[in-house]
Simulated scan of single mutants.
Amino acid sequence: MSRTDVPAQAAAPQAQVVAPRAGAQARWQVRRRRPGMLAAAVACIAVCVAGNWWYWTQNGERQQVLELARDVPAGHVIKDRDLQAASVALDPSMKVVGVQQRGEVVGMRAVSTLRAGALLHPQEVTRRSLVKAGEQKVRIALKSGQMPQLKPADTVQVVFTGDVASSSGAAKSEDPSNPQTVTVRVVWVGAAPESSGEQVVDVAVDKAQGPKLAAQAAAGDVALAVNGAGG
């Protein structure tokens, strides 16, 4: 019997692999890669921001300025040991005192209480004479609760609360409804001592009124009256 060849179409069928369409494959790859790309972009932005911040803090334009090394009460003379140098990056609009002005600042007075660690501003110091010609300086001590908020250069009234000696030396009782007063200018405000609870303030007064004010202050027969805003 002769050998008969099997037709090609009768042979066992082979599995055929159908390649996906190019468009579908591209969309699948885009969907697969998009989360990774977003994460990489976010990480890149974070690195850039951190790098810019580090560069600014390390290499930004810094200035040598004066900083308070300790607290300086209002009215006190500023000493060299009260100051120290600080290197800071500042906004150009911020007014501070540079280290080159240290010699000028020493010997000036604090207009208000200066706190340790704060930068020194030009408006916080003055060279104005606190006690002028024809004036006397008198120290007044009051209980801390009786002391209003004061700063150097404030003008206040001192009210005599006790008997005021007359020109003949005899004590004269004052009308409580119309007490004697004297106008003074604040030159220094002290801190409240912890022991006595009193706070002191130095005032400049006309020398004609100085002795009377000093006597009343020594007896504790004074009070301070401060005008409100606008007089």
Rank of each mutant, 00 (worst) to 15 (best):
V17K: 09
G60L: 05
L224M: 12
L130A: 11
S87C: 12
A214T: 04
Q25C: 09
V201P: 00
A89M: 13
K95S: 14
L119W: 09
Q146R: 08
V159A: 06
G197Y: 02
K137T: 04
S144Y: 08
G75R: 00
P152G: 03
G228M: 04
R102T: 05
D175P: 00
L119Y: 08
P152D: 00
K95D: 13
Q149W: 03
A10S: 12
A39N: 07
G230N: 13
A11Q: 15
A118I: 11
A15T: 14
L120P: 05
P122M: 05
G36Y: 11
D71K: 01
M147C: 04
M94V: 10
V201L: 02
L130K: 00
G107T: 05
N52V: 15
L119V: 07
G107W: 00
E198W: 02
K151P: 01
V158A: 00
K95H: 15
Q9D: 15
H121P: 05
E198K: 03
D163G: 07
V111W: 04
Q9C: 10
K79T: 11
G51Y: 07
L114V: 05
R70G: 14
A110S: 15
G231R: 07
A191C: 10
P176C: 06
V105E: 00
R33F: 15
S177Y: 08
D175S: 07
Q9T: 06
V203M: 01
A219N: 13
K79Y: 04
Q199A: 10
V88P: 02
G98D: 10
V164H: 01
A74R: 01
A19R: 12
Q100K: 11
A229I: 14
S177I: 11
W56G: 06
M37D: 08
V205P: 02
D5L: 06
W56K: 08
V138P: 01
G36M: 05
V201E: 00
D175H: 08
P20S: 05
V184P: 01
G103S: 08
V47C: 11
W54R: 10
V156E: 00
D221P: 02
P92Y: 13
V203S: 00
V203G: 01
C44P: 07
F160E: 01
M37P: 02
D202K: 00
A69D: 12
V203N: 00
Y55R: 14
G107M: 04
A214V: 01
I78H: 00
V77R: 05
G162N: 13
W54E: 06
C48V: 15
S129Q: 09
K95G: 09
R115T: 15
Q100H: 11
G231L: 15
W54V: 13
V88Y: 06
A215S: 10
D154M: 02
Q180H: 12
V111I: 06
